[in-house]
């Protein structure tokens, strides 16, 4: 993710920089009180005011001629804010990126700070009324969520090991959810979610309103047309409508612009016809996250 890797990647990807996971960083940013304030009423984030305008019906407001442009600019600034006077109740500085399962595993095994918890997904609870214990949070955020009864799972344990976190993320991937890693707030990293359109709050803003709450992965899927047998198993895995079966070609074709690089299609292909390739090596997609 060019800009964020440059600012917080220490020469690599932002989410592979150990410093961004450290307790020292969380402490130096005074995040205990900030995250508690944010999480106590997190579900109110979409009804709060931005620039004095209620964010209810953001979609129509963004379409307004001049105000819409200013609003978009100010929402983007808020989402990516690194300022010292960030507002926790608007979730300032909170955004993420899609990662394939192998990187989620790398993070959980080597980088995530303990304790690690698996709690109810706030988005699915907020937008669908469902209790789904699938969100993996870690470090300081775990101790914040522990204090909030509504996110504590009833039928599974809250505290999990690194290995259990990897298993949980794999299970979610298998179900068809994509792994995403989050700054909360930038540059502190404390969550890997298993997201699904349209009930993920972050993907909602990205997919429906073009706001950069979630960036595409560092990868893009490529289908090997010699290997693909046209079985179509991959198509139902894609949340972004990037894959289509072509009756003329009798195989699957991909729209690389739509592809978020989650790797879900790759993981089910019986022919191993799909691979993830680095976005930056793709001339047409370089810098397009």
């Amino acid at each position: 993710m060019c800009k964020w890797c440059m600012r917080h990647g220490a020469g690599g990807k932002w989410y592979l920089n150990a410093r961004n996971y450290s307790n020292e960083l969380a402490e130096s940013m005074n995040l205990q009180a900030y995250l508690e304030e944010q999480w106590k009423n997190f579900e109110q984030v979409y009804i709060r005011k931005i620039m004095g305008i209620s964010s209810i019906d953001l979609g129509n407001k963004l379409k307004m001629p001049i105000i819409g442009r200013i609003l978009r600019w100010s929402v983007e600034r808020m989402i990516h804010s690194e300022s010292l006077n960030r507002n926790p109740v608007r979730a300032d500085g909170h955004f993420g990126q899609v990662i394939p399962i192998e990187e989620a595993k790398l993070i959980m095994m080597n980088l995530a700070a303990e304790p690690i918890i698996k709690n109810y997904c706030m988005c699915r609870m907020m937008q669908k009324g469902l209790k789904d214990a699938c969100c993996i949070n870690f470090g300081l955020l775990s101790s914040v969520i522990e204090k909030l009864p509504r996110f504590i799972p009833e039928n599974s344990k809250l505290h999990i090991t690194r290995e259990e976190a990897v298993e949980a993320l794999k299970e979610q991937n298998l179900k068809g959810r994509i792994a995403t890693v989050w700054f909360q707030p930038v540059p502190y990293i404390n969550a890997i979610c298993s997201c699904e359109v349209p009930q993920c709050g972050g993907l909602r803003l990205r997919m429906d309103f073009g706001l950069y709450t979630v960036y595409k992965a560092e990868y893009v899927a490529e289908v090997n047309s010699d290997l693909c047998q046209g079985c179509r198993s991959c198509i139902s895995r894609c949340q972004f409508n990037a894959l289509r079966y072509s009756p003329t070609l009798e195989r699957v074709i991909i729209d690389p612009i739509k592809c978020f690089g989650c790797g879900l299609c790759r993981d089910v292909c019986p022919q191993k016809a799909i691979i993830l390739t680095p976005r930056e090596e793709h001339p047409g997609l370089k810098g397009k996250y």
Binding site: N41, Y46, D57, N60, R150
Partner: peptide, 17 residues
């Protein structure tokens, strides 16, 4: 207990959709 809110509401937020 602000950590365990008991009063809830439903709001249609994404009207354009």
């Amino acid at each position: 207990n602000p950590y365990d809110p008991q009063y809830w509401q439903v709001t249609p937020v994404w009207l354009s959709l």
